[in-house]
Design a protein around this nucleic acid. Structure first.
Length: 378
DNA sequence: AGCCGCTTCGCCGATTAAGC
DNA sequence: GCTTAATCGGCGAAGCGGCT
């Protein structure tokens, strides 16, 4: 429980730092610029191959990592592609990694935090002494530092995306004479990965399919309102899966919501319980999904779907369960229209209070819990 | 680009609670 | 005693970022 509080505090801290440096606002602004100057797509189309696990894990769940921006970067690249190109067009990189109009400007990060000093400015002690004293020079140095960190994260993301393996790689980075990576020449792969053929499956903008069997869509606000910047990889993965399900079974979704129990979730997506449970909980708090009303007519809706894959995914094979039912979820597209930064700030602060109250109650009910602890803080 | 200490957060197994 | 959903805490891998 203290762990949940710590995680929540940490997240609030990082959010606050990003607010201080306007990181999310700047990244969203840069994305908005690309959108406005481009084809202004209402939604971004993704091939479902990104989520599908053949065997153990999908490309998506391989990118559910504790550090880094690999998943975020890939989705941003798809957004960028679809602002520039029509369906069927082949993508190639026209953007530098750093500087104006670069990939680095599209991502928001907080920067290096130092636990010992409890500050983000630990690196300031390494600031060249000649800059010291001038507030403006210090500020410029700080900005440069953050730009440098963003660039390193982008490179890191490209490495991670490439090292998903020959078959699964989502980008490919050419090498120089001495085998060093020429990051700026990277090419983007289709959602299904590079493939195992000699010629890579280079990214082309997918054609929207009527059914959501092969593609599904993400509203532009996911990118433009800062959500892509502030959600964790596990939350993004959970949201993507829910979006795909809601579009694959639209009738069932609007009727009774969609749900996913452990076995089919592991089998179809390779997403573990914790990532899913936590992801759903946070997305609920952030207003991106909601609990469906009681699943009336669930059985009818499931039975109406003859597709055996859908049935395997969405139905309980043995019986209709009355008790210990999983949660039924519905997407709330209006939630995305909110400013992600503000929403997270508000909701994480709520959660901080809730967690504190819960801890207080626990102490009141079980005072001996405190006996072992020194009353140092508070 | 590489080394490496440090931070982060998803994984994993244990546990609880529920129905059959 | 067999399920499965949900919760929790400790752990460790991934990879960030300082430094060279």
């Amino acid at each position: 429980m203290a762990d949940a509080r710590e995680t929540n505090e940490r997240r609030l801290r990082r959010l606050q730092q990003m607010r201080r440096t306007s990181s999310v606002a700047k990244a969203s602004e840069a994305l908005g610029g690309i959108w406005k100057a481009g084809k202004k797509p209402d939604s971004i189309v993704l091939r479902t191959a990104l989520l599908q696990a053949d065997g153990d894990q999908s490309r998506l769940t391989k990118l559910v990592l504790p550090r880094g921006i690999a998943l975020r970067f890939y989705l941003l690249a798809l957004f960028e592609a679809q602002c520039q190109l029509d369906a069927g067009d082949l993508w190639q990189n026209v953007r530098p990694l750093k500087g104006v109009e670069s990939w680095s400007t599209l991502v928001a990060i907080d920067g290096a935090y130092d636990t010992a000093s409890g500050a983000y400015d630990a690196a300031l002690k390494n600031m060249p002494p000649e800059l010291r004293g001038s507030a403006r020079a210090e500020e410029r140095w700080r900005t440069r530092k953050l730009e440098d960190l963003r660039l390193r994260q982008v490179k890191g993301a490209l490495r991670t995306l490439e090292e998903l393996g020959q078959e699964n790689a989502l980008v490919s980075v050419p090498r120089g004479a001495r085998g060093q990576r020429l990051y700026e020449g990277f090419s983007l792969m289709e959602e299904g990965g590079r493939g195992d053929m000699p010629t890579p499956d280079l990214y082309t903008v997918p054609v929207r399919s009527g059914t959501a069997a092969r593609t599904f869509t993400l509203p532009k606000d996911f990118f433009l309102k800062g959500w892509i910047q502030v959600l964790n990889p596990s939350e993004v993965a959970t949201w993507l899966i829910l979006r795909w399900m809601s579009q694959w079974a639209p009738r069932k979704h609007s009727l009774s919501g969609v749900f996913l129990t452990t076995r089919p979730r592991m089998q179809a997506f390779g997403l573990r319980d914790d990532a899913w449970e936590d992801g759903c909980q946070r997305l609920l708090e952030f207003g991106l999904i909601r609990h469906a009303e009681q699943p009336e007519g669930l059985k009818a809706a499931v039975d109406a779907l003859a597709d055996p894959v859908i049935t395997a995914l969405f139905s309980q094979p043995t019986r209709v369960r009355q008790a210990y039912e999983p949660h039924y979820w519905q997407m709330t597209d209006d939630g995305l229209a909110e400013n992600a930064m503000q929403t997270l700030d508000r909701e994480l602060t709520h959660r901080r209070d809730a967690l504190t109250n819960a801890a207080l109650k626990r102490v009141q009910h079980d005072p001996e819990h405190l006996a072992g602890h020194a009353p140092a803080d508070e």
